[in-house]
Protein backbone atom coordinates (compact mmCIF):
# COMPACT_ATOMS: atom_id res chain seq x y z
CA UNK A 1 0.00 0.00 0.00
CA UNK A 2 1.15 3.58 -0.60
CA UNK A 3 2.91 5.45 2.18
CA UNK A 4 1.59 8.81 3.37
CA UNK A 5 3.60 11.19 5.53
CA UNK A 6 1.66 13.43 7.92
CA UNK A 7 3.83 16.42 8.81
CA UNK A 8 2.19 18.51 11.51
CA UNK A 9 3.43 19.82 14.85
CA UNK A 10 0.02 19.06 16.39
CA UNK A 11 0.08 15.56 17.86
CA UNK A 12 -3.72 15.62 17.72
CA UNK A 13 -3.71 16.06 13.93
CA UNK A 14 -1.05 13.39 13.38
CA UNK A 15 -3.09 10.96 15.48
CA UNK A 16 -6.47 11.81 13.91
CA UNK A 17 -5.40 11.86 10.27
CA UNK A 18 -2.90 9.04 10.74
CA UNK A 19 -5.61 6.81 12.19
CA UNK A 20 -8.01 7.68 9.39
CA UNK A 21 -5.43 6.93 6.68
CA UNK A 22 -4.41 3.69 8.39
CA UNK A 23 -8.07 2.64 8.38
CA UNK A 24 -8.02 3.22 4.61
CA UNK A 25 -5.06 0.86 4.36
CA UNK A 26 -2.25 3.38 3.89
CA UNK A 27 1.11 3.08 5.61
CA UNK A 28 1.54 6.25 7.67
CA UNK A 29 4.77 7.93 8.70
CA UNK A 30 4.87 11.08 10.80
CA UNK A 31 6.94 14.23 11.23
CA UNK A 32 6.47 16.77 14.03
CA UNK A 33 8.20 19.74 12.39
CA UNK A 34 9.52 20.92 9.04
CA UNK A 35 13.08 19.72 9.58
CA UNK A 36 11.87 16.26 10.55
CA UNK A 37 9.57 16.23 7.50
CA UNK A 38 12.58 16.67 5.20
CA UNK A 39 14.54 13.94 7.03
CA UNK A 40 11.62 11.49 7.01
CA UNK A 41 11.01 12.18 3.32
CA UNK A 42 14.63 11.30 2.49
CA UNK A 43 14.42 8.13 4.54
CA UNK A 44 10.89 6.85 3.81
CA UNK A 45 10.20 8.33 0.36
CA UNK A 46 6.43 8.53 0.97
CA UNK A 47 4.06 8.50 -2.00
CA UNK A 48 2.10 11.48 -0.67
CA UNK A 49 2.87 14.13 1.94
CA UNK A 50 0.28 16.04 3.98
CA UNK A 51 2.14 19.14 5.14
CA UNK A 52 1.11 21.71 7.72
CA UNK A 53 2.35 25.25 7.23
CA UNK A 54 2.96 26.69 10.69
CA UNK A 55 5.53 24.43 12.31
CA UNK A 56 8.58 25.01 14.51
CA UNK A 57 12.21 24.55 13.34
CA UNK A 58 11.33 24.82 9.67
CA UNK A 59 7.94 25.97 8.42
CA UNK A 60 5.89 23.93 5.95
CA UNK A 61 6.70 26.10 2.93
CA UNK A 62 10.46 25.84 3.53
CA UNK A 63 10.17 22.06 4.03
CA UNK A 64 8.04 21.78 0.87
CA UNK A 65 10.63 23.69 -1.18
CA UNK A 66 13.45 21.48 0.14
CA UNK A 67 11.56 18.26 -0.55
CA UNK A 68 10.68 19.40 -4.09
CA UNK A 69 14.31 20.34 -4.78
CA UNK A 70 15.34 16.84 -3.71
CA UNK A 71 12.44 15.17 -5.54
CA UNK A 72 10.71 17.26 -8.23
CA UNK A 73 8.02 14.54 -8.49
CA UNK A 74 7.08 14.76 -4.81
CA UNK A 75 3.32 14.77 -4.24
CA UNK A 76 2.70 17.26 -1.45
CA UNK A 77 -0.68 18.46 -0.21
CA UNK A 78 -0.64 21.51 2.03
CA UNK A 79 -3.05 21.01 4.94
CA UNK A 80 -3.30 24.28 6.81
CA UNK A 81 -5.74 26.63 8.49
CA UNK A 82 -4.22 29.56 6.58
CA UNK A 83 -6.37 29.87 3.46
CA UNK A 84 -4.90 33.10 2.18
CA UNK A 85 -4.30 33.74 -1.50
CA UNK A 86 -0.66 34.77 -1.07
CA UNK A 87 0.12 31.60 0.90
CA UNK A 88 -1.64 29.36 -1.65
CA UNK A 89 0.25 31.00 -4.51
CA UNK A 90 3.55 30.60 -2.68
CA UNK A 91 2.81 26.93 -1.94
CA UNK A 92 1.85 26.12 -5.52
CA UNK A 93 4.99 27.90 -6.79
CA UNK A 94 7.09 25.89 -4.35
CA UNK A 95 5.66 22.65 -5.73
CA UNK A 96 2.50 21.83 -3.75
CA UNK A 97 0.00 19.75 -5.77
CA UNK A 98 -3.06 20.53 -3.67
CA UNK A 99 -4.11 22.83 -0.86
CA UNK A 100 -6.67 21.93 1.83
CA UNK A 101 -7.88 24.52 4.33
CA UNK A 102 -8.69 23.39 7.87
CA UNK A 103 -11.15 22.72 9.29
CA UNK A 104 -12.05 20.21 6.60
CA UNK A 105 -13.92 16.94 6.64
CA UNK A 106 -11.68 13.85 7.04
CA UNK A 107 -13.22 12.40 3.86
CA UNK A 108 -11.84 15.35 1.90
CA UNK A 109 -8.32 14.54 3.08
CA UNK A 110 -8.68 10.89 2.05
CA UNK A 111 -10.16 11.94 -1.29
CA UNK A 112 -7.27 14.37 -1.95
CA UNK A 113 -4.71 11.65 -1.18
CA UNK A 114 -6.45 9.15 -3.48
CA UNK A 115 -6.75 11.72 -6.27
CA UNK A 116 -3.08 12.62 -6.07
CA UNK A 117 -2.02 8.98 -6.14
CA UNK A 118 -4.02 8.50 -9.33
CA UNK A 119 -2.37 11.47 -11.01
CA UNK A 120 0.62 10.97 -13.25
CA UNK A 121 3.49 13.17 -12.15
Amino acid sequence: MPTVMVADDAEFIRLRIGRMLSDEGYVVVEAADGQEAVSVYHRARPDVVLMDLTMPNKNGLAALAEICRFDPHARVIMLTALGQQSIMTEAIRAGARDFLVKPCEPERVVHAVKRLLEMRV
Binding site: A10, E11, F12, I13, L53, T54, T80, A81, L82, G83, Q84, Q85, S86, I87, E90, V101, K102, P103
Partner: peptide, 29 residues
Protein backbone atom coordinates in the same frame (compact mmCIF):
# COMPACT_ATOMS: atom_id res chain seq x y z
CA UNK B 1 -2.55 19.37 21.36
CA UNK B 2 -6.26 19.29 20.43
CA UNK B 3 -6.87 22.57 22.30
CA UNK B 4 -3.81 24.08 20.62
CA UNK B 5 -5.18 23.07 17.23
CA UNK B 6 -8.52 24.68 18.12
CA UNK B 7 -6.68 27.93 18.87
CA UNK B 8 -4.58 27.67 15.73
CA UNK B 9 -7.53 27.10 13.41
CA UNK B 10 -9.72 29.72 15.13
CA UNK B 11 -7.08 32.45 14.92
CA UNK B 12 -6.07 31.46 11.38
CA UNK B 13 -9.68 31.79 10.24
CA UNK B 14 -9.78 35.26 11.84
CA UNK B 15 -6.59 36.24 9.97
CA UNK B 16 -7.84 34.72 6.69
CA UNK B 17 -10.69 37.26 6.67
CA UNK B 18 -8.45 40.22 7.47
CA UNK B 19 -5.68 39.33 4.98
CA UNK B 20 -5.63 41.68 2.02
CA UNK B 21 -3.59 41.08 -1.13
CA UNK B 22 -1.28 44.04 -0.50
CA UNK B 23 -0.61 42.97 3.09
CA UNK B 24 1.09 39.66 2.40
CA UNK B 25 0.46 36.60 4.54
CA UNK B 26 -0.84 36.90 8.10
CA UNK B 27 0.33 33.95 10.16
CA UNK B 28 0.02 32.92 13.80
CA UNK B 29 2.81 31.26 15.77
Amino acid sequence: SALGELGNVALSSFLNILAQPSWGALKPS
